[in-house]
C-alpha cells in the first residue's frame, strides 16, 4: 500500500530522475507531505500531496512520522504518547542553544552562522563538475 511520509529537513527537492543530479521539479519544506509510490531504492518515487507533482526524493529527507509544525500543548501531549508524530522545534532547539550560548559566551557561533551562509546551488554543483571534467557515473552533465 502507498504510504504517506513527511519532509523532516528544512528543505528538499523532488527530482525528475532518481539521482543527485536529477533536474529539480519541486522544492519542499519541513513538514510537507508526499505519497510514496515505490520505495525499492533510496530514491523514493513520490507524489507531493499538496500539488500532485510526481518525481523522486531521497529517503534521508523523509520520515514516516507526521511532522507537526508549531505544535500546541494538545499536539505535544498526543505526541508524547505515540511514535506517529515528530514535533518541529522541540527538544534540542533554538531556546536550548540560546541558553547554552548565554552560559558559554566565549563560543564562536558567529563563525557557524557565516559557515551556514556558504550554500551551493544545484546549478553551481553541475558547473563545478563540468569545469573540472569530473564525470559522474551514468550522468551526462
Amino acid at each position: 500500500m502507498d504510504k504517506s511520509m513527511s519532509v523532516h529537513v528544512r528543505q528538499s527537492h523532488v527530482r525528475e530522475k532518481p539521482s543527485f543530479l536529477g533536474r529539480i521539479l519541486a522544492r519542499l519544506s519541513h513538514g510537507d507531505r508526499v505519497l510514496v509510490l515505490d520505495d525499492k531504492t533510496d530514491w523514493f518515487d513520490v507524489r507531493v500531496e499538496a500539488t500532485g507533482a510526481r518525481g523522486f526524493m531521497h529517503t534521508s529527507a523523509l520520515t514516516i512520522k507526521k511532522v507537526i509544525l508549531n505544535p500546541g500543548e494538545q499536539a505535544v501531549e498526543k505526541t508524547a504518547t505515540s511514535d506517529e508524530f515528530a514535533l518541529a522545534g522541540k527538544g534540542f532547539n533554538e531556546s536550548v542553544e540560546g541558553r547554552f550560548r548565554a552560559e558559554n559566551p566565549h563560543l564562536n557561533f558567529g563563525s557557524i552562522d557565516r559557515m551556514e551562509a556558504y550554500g551551493v546551488s544545484e546549478d553551481q554543483m553541475r558547473q563545478f563538475l563540468f569545469a573540472g571534467k569530473v564525470m559522474p557515473k551514468g550522468e551526462p552533465l
Binding site: H8, V9, R10, Q11, S12, F20, L21, D42, H58, S60, A61, E116, G119, M125, P136
Partner: peptide, 11 residues
C-alpha cells in the same frame, strides 16, 4: 549530494 545521506536538516 552523492552520499547515502544527501539530506540533513540544514545541509
Amino acid at each position: 549530494a552523492a552520499s547515502d545521506r544527501p539530506d540533513t536538516f540544514g545541509g
